[in-house]
Amino acid sequence: MTHIVENFDSKLDLVFERDVDIAPELIWAAWTKPEHLVHWFTPVPWKTLEAECDVRPGGLFRSVMAGPNGERHENIGTYLEVVAHRRLCWTDALGPGYRPTSNAFVTAVVSMEPLPGGGTRYIACARHKDEATVQAHIAMGFKDGWGKALDQLVAYMKTQSGSLS
């Protein structure tokens, strides 16, 4: 890890970091506009069927994912922190309006740092409630899955750079 993530706990947090050749504004649009999110959010062969993004603290972050064998997973959470083009933080431990949920799995922080000469340092930190949840996320393929999803985000957004409005 070349970047320090604040309050990082090696027993409870997983970090994914990569420099990519698109601007933070494109990554931001990919994360905050449902019409973009559905194209890249889950690594193939999974698909994102639906997404809702009320991008404000306390606002809804929702996705519905489908697996290749008919699996279906709905994730409902809320945004905790929103810093345009730089940082998003959300959790499934709370729902919209900061209402507690019963299925807490992860609090995620995605940072987008502009690089000199263009591009973005993309840093995603997945924070977990306990070591068992960390191990479950690793078993699900955290690094590979988040890497594939980022590859899909970059490829998709390179085709969308003229449609960010």
Rank of each mutant, 00 (worst) to 15 (best):
G58T: 01
E50D: 10
D151Y: 01
P57T: 02
A149W: 03
D19R: 12
P34D: 10
A108L: 12
V83S: 13
T133N: 02
A124T: 11
L49K: 15
H137R: 10
D151V: 01
H3P: 01
L164P: 01
F41H: 11
Q135W: 06
L88H: 04
F8S: 05
T133M: 14
W40D: 05
A30G: 15
F142M: 09
G97H: 09
L115H: 02
E113R: 09
L14K: 13
H137T: 14
L12N: 07
W28H: 09
T2G: 15
I22C: 02
H3Y: 13
L115M: 08
P114Q: 04
K143Q: 12
C53S: 12
S111D: 15
W40K: 09
I27C: 15
R18C: 05
T107F: 00
A126Y: 08
W46N: 12
H36F: 15
M65S: 11
T120A: 09
V134F: 08
E113C: 00
R72I: 14
V44A: 13
L88Q: 07
V44C: 02
K47Q: 14
D19N: 14
N69G: 11
Q160H: 06
S102F: 12
L80W: 06
T32A: 04
H36V: 01
F105T: 15
M1A: 14
A30W: 02
Q135H: 08
C89S: 10
L164I: 02
R56G: 00
I138A: 02
P114L: 05
P43K: 09
C89T: 14
R56Q: 10
W40S: 05
D54K: 04
L60C: 04
E25G: 00
P43N: 10
F142G: 11
P45N: 05
V38N: 06
Y98Q: 06
S102K: 14
G147L: 05
V44D: 11
K47W: 04
A29C: 07
P45E: 10
A124I: 02
Q152V: 02
